[in-house]
Design a protein around this nucleic acid. Structure first.
Lengths: 285, 285
DNA sequence: GGCGGTCATACCGCGAGGGTATCGCCCGTG
DNA sequence: CACGGGCGATACCCTCGCGGTATGACCGCC
């Protein structure tokens, strides 16, 4: 009876998400670049179509209903899937196809050069564009900006991605050369209690400066403002004024190659296979 | 420069998917309930907006370009996410909230009654609606028709779902009472070579009748038209004219409880916790 | 009690989207 | 080889959905 049309236009959904995030029709309308009345009507129409009240609006305040919270969360995901589809389609239509790999500077455990060389030797290999990003790599894969990314599990969220484990790495603490613990042969996490944060590069404490890049982090460590616990492979590129000390009881980090779980590209499959092969060889050596 | 509008309306995407699946504008238009010319224009507009050619149309034939295949695959997923969002929103707006659990008849390893009882005893428990389906359970969770499902790994695809393992089960062969192998204490997969299919209930061979329900399968077995290899828990409900024989070398099946990986419902979380607890206790007993 | 702010309503104009008719092209066929 | 049939594209028209402006209804605040 109420059933009606089961489809929701992306415009309507975009509008709703804006209002749900702003909780204010006027601001949302400005953000969307339209006037407020059409926005009000669009939301009403959407509510009518879904047969569900999404926003409880009092003359003073706007708040989400249960259903509204659901649509905000799920709708956001749906819009992301949609723009990912668009981005991937655009990329697939380019005349010069390539693979985009998102990596973190210094976060490749030095495997990348060998992987790239091995892949380039593969028949039918595409050019590989490396994009560096410290925090957005997972999102870049999910939204189609990148074909694959090197991520660190379990530090980074892998939901929605297919992964291939490349390397399990124990962790080391990075300390200034003169630090009281710098001479120790190894440390436990307990030894580091009370040391200045950020202990984990990506978990930026609220209110502190964001660490966008490992160079910044290392700089902070050198200044005695922080202590970092990072995968041991970064030891190869350590600044001369820093030392590393193994931390056996820190949970090991796994370097993984991640890609969209429903990807079908032959080139990507070959790249993944090659990377796994290179990592396996490196692990044995 | 070409950038233009980054948004694609769901109607356009639906249209494209129809054409891409039919590979024929006329048929697609009929399926969509519109005339052919507007459909042609919509596709052209979409191509213009994306800046990519999606369909190579010769006066005789229509075929997908690389980009078109990408958009078909990804767009399909995006539309699914969208209708899942709508369905979940509608359900969240119902005045009588409940949990919908998809199960397979006979596929609950007899855990379900206890799980339901334990959950119902939980403070704030919602009513649980059980929906039976043999093949669609995973899809039902993905598209929002169900909040959770009991699935059998690795037989069923779990991508995109969060899961909790409930029970690892070894498998048994189900045979007619008079079968030549019925007296054996155990069997290997090799013993079953050459036995009539379907060996696996969900893998329905092309061209045979679909086995929609385990009663049908058991009937086929009783008629000597098939041999089934299934989780051992079904032994409890076996027909009197059938016998079961352990098959130790068949890969074990895991009964898992699966739900959408980004679900946030408190009720669902409680249900999952309860189910895991019940399964753990049952496993110890 | 006026004033400002908020969301809803009224009314209007335009353009996107759908329909019909037709074209242009190619192929199969007698 | 001429012709008809089937296909997608184009031309043209019309409707209605969407957005804009103006205004209303309601409320809290100075």
């Amino acid at each position: 009876m109420t059933a009606g049309d089961d489809t929701v236009e992306t415009r309507e959904l975009t509008y709703f998400v804006a209002v749900a995030e702003e909780l204010h029709f006027g601001r949302a309308a400005r953000r969307l670049g339209i006037a407020q009345p059409p926005l009000s009507r669009a939301i009403q129409r959407l509510e009518r179509r879904l047969g569900v009240r999404l926003l409880e609006r009092d003359h003073r305040t706007v708040e989400l209903t249960e259903a509204g919270e659901t649509l905000l969360r799920e709708g956001h995901a749906a819009l992301a899937a949609l723009s990912a589809a668009v981005r991937r389609t655009r990329r697939a239509g380019r005349d010069a196809p390539s693979l985009v790999l998102a990596a973190k500077p210094g976060g490749d455990a030095d495997l990348l050069p060998e992987i790239l060389a091995a892949y380039a030797a593969t028949p039918g290999a595409l050019p590989v564009d490396i994009v560096f990003s410290a925090r957005e790599r997972g999102a870049m894969v999910r939204d189609g900006r990148a074909d694959a990314a090197l991520l660190h599990a379990p530090r980074e969220d892998l939901t929605g991605l297919a992964v291939e484990e490349l390397l399990v790495e124990s962790q080391v603490a990075v300390l200034p050369r003169g630090h009281r613990l710098a001479g120790r042969a190894e440390l436990s996490m307990a030894d580091l209690d009370g040391e200045p944060l950020p202990r984990w590069p990506e978990a930026v404490p609220e209110g502190s400066f964001g660490i966008a890049e490992s160079g910044q982090l290392m700089h902070l460590v050198a200044l005695g403002r922080a202590v970092a616990v990072v995968p041991r492979s970064i030891r190869a590129n350590l600044r001369h004024d820093l030392v590393s000390v193994p931390v056996p009881d820190a949970p090991p980090t796994t370097l993984v190659l991640a890609w969209p779980q429903d990807a079908r590209s032959r080139a990507l499959a070959a790249f993944v296979r090659t990377a796994a092969e290179v990592a396996r060889r490196a692990g044995q050596a």
